[in-house]
Design a protein around this nucleic acid. Structure first.
Lengths: 223, 223
DNA sequence: CATGGATTAAAACGGTCGATTGAATCGAAC
DNA sequence: GTTCGATTCAATCGACCGTTTTAATCCATG
């Protein structure tokens, strides 16, 4: 039972794969590049993981598992504290976006992990999408009911629309932090998770509390 | 001077490539699949476009150009109407997200175009990112100043943070409309651009008007 | 030291990719 | 009707991909 973790081939592969996937994307990152960075043999990947798809899943699960667990634990605490009453909206949103954004600070990997994490959402391919549904399905369901309890007067269709907006804003911030620094002229530093979380939670909570859009005025196109 | 447009090889390639890129992603969509759908020869792609990269750029530019033009025209009209006063926030946001979301209705292609359009944001690769900066740089700058004029009391750093959230929410909605229908159990129909725009604008406008996040309470992690 | 399962190493397999070549075909101008 | 540039075609190139195979090496156990 190898309990060796430093220099362990399996972990070396995982680290190099994570780096390569985040930098180049899942398709463009070849196994040969990964093994050259990891300093191991090509066949080791298939020996330890079986296939490239399984390697992708392993890389993904290592990071997403703890994040989703942290999300659910925070949500548990919030619900326990609130009892039967309404849930505090800001805290629910923070439980959803906080652990993901904080991943950049907790891990020595830094922005690399963020890009990997956010990129998967937009990636095509049946395999990745199945994996996403499997990994996030439960979390999405739990937070849907939690958000409903946080803004009880919100109709269900608007709730789902706004959840989609939350996921999009969070995912884009996670996926591409460099663009923010670029367009802001260096004014905003996306690698600081505390500022990012504060700004994001304030924005999203206000969005969740927005009055319902008026039904009419749907096609005022010139004529 | 070929003014023939129906059955034109160049256009056939462009249409098939757009379809394939949207469905499979830029890397996974091979030129051989594109030519088999278009019913043309493999060499025709290189004859008319020179390379796969150039083809991607052509596919992208055909759709993004008109969208960005529509955005700027709408913004021009808003600024003209407002004179020196503050700009109406909802209309500025609608000018930014409306043309992109409406692309699905205006084009016969439907959701295919949406997925292509949104996917590029999250894609890695130096070439695509250069292209993005070139295509969107001006639009981002224009809308940054316009949004500043719409919420004058907002500090500049918060403005850029919130612009990033706007782009993320819009991009995710454009990129992956199916997930919304899935998680909402069919309650929300993302292919209806009017509803999508109404919901998105209401959410984003409220987010832009959100009070500034409090500075403290930044690390209450257990200890 | 000998042994046998676990791990690593080197080499090759079949396949697909983007790109290129050179000949065949088309179509308008003379 | 011939000519010539524009376009299409089949065939192929070299490179790289993920995967597999087979042999060498390690290492705890008897």
């Amino acid at each position: 039972m190898g309990k060796l973790s430093e220099g362990d081939t399996k972990t070396l592969i995982l680290d190099a794969a994570e780096q390569a996937f985040a930098e180049l994307g899942f398709d463009a990152a070849s196994l040969r590049r990964i093994i050259s960075v990891a300093g191991v043999n090509l066949a080791a990947i298939h020996y330890h993981y079986g296939s490239k798809e399984a390697l992708i899943e392993a890389v993904f699960a290592r990071r997403v598992g703890p994040v989703n667990q942290a999300r659910l634990e925070r949500l548990d605490a919030i619900e326990r504290r609130a009892g039967q009453g309404v849930l505090p909206l800001e805290e629910v949103i923070e439980a959803l976006v906080g652990p993901a954004l904080r991943l950049a600070r907790d891990s020595a990997k830094g922005p690399v992990v963020m890009r990997l994490y956010g990129r998967t959402v937009a990636e095509p391919g049946e395999h990745l999408q199945k994996m996403l549904s499997h990994q996030f399905g439960g979390v999405v369901k739990r937070f849907a009911t939690a958000l409903q309890r946080a803004v009880p007067e919100l109709p269900r269709d608007a709730l789902y629309w706004r959840m989609q907006f939350i996921i999009g804003a969070m995912g884009h911030l996670i996926c591409d932090p460099q663009r923010l620094k670029l367009i802001s002229g260096g004014l905003c530093d996306p690698s600081d998770p505390n500022t990012a979380i504060r700004q994001l939670v304030a924005f999203l909570a206000a969005g969740m509390r927005a009055p319902l859009p008026s039904k009419r005025k749907e096609a005022p196109r010139k004529r």
